[in-house]
C-alpha cells in the first residue's frame, strides 16, 4: 500500500517538475513579460499535452522501478532519453497548436532543465521513499537463503545502502552455527521455510546458496506470490554484469566473454 501511494506521489511530482522545468525555461528565455509572439498559454498547453507521453516513456524505461539505483549513470542516461523524447513531443505539440516553430534555444533550455530537475528530484525522492518503505514493519521483507560469504556481502550491502528490500530472516539448508548476520537472525534450516514466510510476511526471497533447492524454493515462491531472486554466484557466475538475454526469443542468462566496451553493444 505504501509503495502504491509513493508511486502515485512520484508520478504526480514528476509531472509537476516536468511542467515546472518548461515554465522556468520560458520565463528565463522570454522574460517575466508574457510574449505575444510566443504566448505562454500555448506554450503551457503544449507542455501539458507532452507530459503524459513523457511519463509513459519514464515508466517504460523503468525509471520509477524499486530496484533502480537513482544515483547512477545508467539512470541519468535513461532520464536523459526520456527528456529528449519529451523535447521532441513538446516541439510537435507546439507545432500542432500554433502551426509554427519557436526558439531552438528555449527548447534546449527546457530539455536541459527538465533533465536536471527530474534527476535531482529522483535522487531526493528515492531517499524519502527508502526511509518510508523501511519503516517497521518493512514493506518488502526479504528472506535470505544461505549463510555463505556471498550472502553476508549481500546483507551488508542492503543494510548499508538502506535498501527498500529489507532482509528480515535467514535460513540455511545445511544448518549453520551462525545465529545472525549483520543483526539479521538465522532462524534454522529449510524446514522452517513456510513458517518463516508466513510469520515474517515475506515478499522477496533471495537464494545465495545450494542451487539444488532452486526448483523447490521457486515452487514455494510461486504458490505464495513471492518474488524469487537468485544470486548469479550460486550458479558459479562471478562476473559483475549478468544480463538476461534471448537466443531467438528464448530467455538465457548470459555471461559474455571478455569484449571491449564497444563490443558490449554488438555482442
Amino acid at each position: 500500500m505504501r509503495r502504491i501511494f509513493l508511486t502515485i506521489i512520484w508520478l504526480i511530482t514528476d509531472a509537476l517538475i516536468f511542467v515546472g522545468a518548461y515554465s522556468v525555461a520560458y520565463f528565463l528565455k522570454v522574460g517575466w513579460i508574457f510574449s505575444s509572439d510566443l504566448p505562454f498559454e500555448t506554450f503551457f498547453t503544449a507542455t501539458l499535452m507532452t507530459v503524459g507521453g513523457w511519463l509513459i516513456v519514464m515508466i517504460t524505461m523503468r525509471n520509477l522501478a524499486l530496484s533502480r539505483i537513482q544515483m547512477s549513470p545508467r539512470n541519468f542516461a535513461y532520464i536523459a532519453y526520456a527528456c529528449i523524447i519529451g523535447m521532441a513531443g513538446f516541439a510537435l505539440s507546439f507545432y500542432f497548436l500554433k502551426q509554427t516553430l519557436f526558439s531552438r534555444l528555449l527548447l534546449l533550455l527546457a530539455g536541459t532543465l527538465s533533465l536536471i530537475f527530474v534527476c535531482m528530484w529522483h535522487i531526493l525522492f528515492d531517499q524519502i521513499q527508502r526511509r518510508i518503505l523501511r519503516m517497521n514493519p518493512p514493506t518488502y521483507p526479504l528472506l535470505v537463503i544461505g549463510t555463505n560469504r556471498e550472502a553476508e556481502r549481500l546483507i551488508e550491502k542492503l543494510q548499508r545502502k538502506r535498501s527498500p528490500i529489507v532482509p528480515v530472516a535467514i535460513l540455511d539448508g545445511k544448518g549453520t552455527s551462525k545465529t545472525n548476520i549483520d543483526g539479521i537472525p538465522v532462524l534454522g534450516k529449510l524446514d522452517k521455510l513456510e513458517q518463516t514466510i508466513d510469520e515474517k510476511k515475506i515478499t522477496h526471497l533471495v537464494q545465495c546458496d545450494q542451487i539444488e533447492h532452486s526448483l523447490n524454493l521457486l515452487s514455494v515462491c510461486r504458490s505464495k506470490g513471492i518474488t524469487y531472486m537468485l544470486l548469479p554466484y550460486t550458479l558459479g557466475i562471478i562476473e559483475d554484469r549478468v544480463p538476461a538475454e534471448a537466443l531467438e526469443g528464448k530467455q538465457v542468462v548470459a555471461v559474455p566473454r571478455g569484449t571491449s566496451r564497444l563490443g558490449w553493444f554488438f555482442r
Binding site: G173, G175, K189, L190, D191, L193, E194, H213, N216, S219
Partner: peptide
C-alpha cells in the same frame, strides 16, 4: 526427528 536433509519431502 525433523528430517531437514530430506526437505522438501519432509516439509509436511
Amino acid at each position: 526427528g525433523f528430517a531437514t536433509r530430506l526437505w522438501p519431502l519432509t516439509e509436511k
